[in-house]
């Protein structure tokens, strides 16, 4: 279809396609920031190494600077002492950014219902995907990554001006 023929319709058609294109590119280039604190770290190590290999999903290369990463993986229990640190790391990340709550402690505090543990990281930062399990099996982590990829592919990506 020649965009020059239909001056009005072409604009919307291109916008949708652009989101899909950018979403497709972004979902395979996740740079995770592993905010690793607790037991789930053991599974995080397994997930990112040979047997399960998150490289297949384009999410293998951890970046230890929040400025360089776009996926915050909160792996393990977040305590009230840790909360300001997590919040600051989240704020330092550049848009677009996604957050994954890895394991029940990050999701809801898990079975630590007491004075020390934060009852879910969504109390202080927004979360995109929750992975249940204590700790989750690597398969559920991979499932979580795939769901996040679907979410990224299906959302709009306002990266450049509307004229594009």
């Amino acid at each position: 279809m020649n965009a020059g023929d239909q001056k009005d319709g072409a604009f919307e058609y291109l916008t949708t396609r652009k989101d899909e294109l950018v979403g497709w590119a972004r979902k395979f280039s996740l740079f995770p920031y592993p905010f690793v604190t607790a037991c789930c770290a053991m599974e995080f190590m397994s997930v990112s190494s040979t047997m399960y290999d998150t490289d297949r999903f384009g999410a293998a290369l951890p970046r230890f600077s929040p400025r360089q990463s776009d996926l915050l993986m909160v792996v393990g229990t977040i305590t009230h002492k840790q909360a300001p640190v997590l919040r600051r790391v989240y704020e330092q990340m550049c848009e677009p950014k996604w957050v994954m709550a890895f394991g029940v402690c990050a999701t809801s505090g898990g079975f630590y219902q007491n004075y020390a543990a934060l009852q879910g990281i969504d109390k202080i930062i927004p979360v995109d995907v929750y992975i249940p399990g204590c700790p989750p099996r690597p398969e559920s982590v991979i499932d979580g990554i795939m769901q996040l990829q679907e979410k990224i592919a299906g959302s709009s990506h306002p990266i450049v001006s509307d004229r594009f």
Partner: peptide, 11 residues
């Protein structure tokens, strides 16, 4: 340390 103090003894 203490960033992972989750109240084990109280629990």
């Amino acid at each position: 340390c203490g960033y992972l103090h989750r109240g084990f003894e109280k629990e």
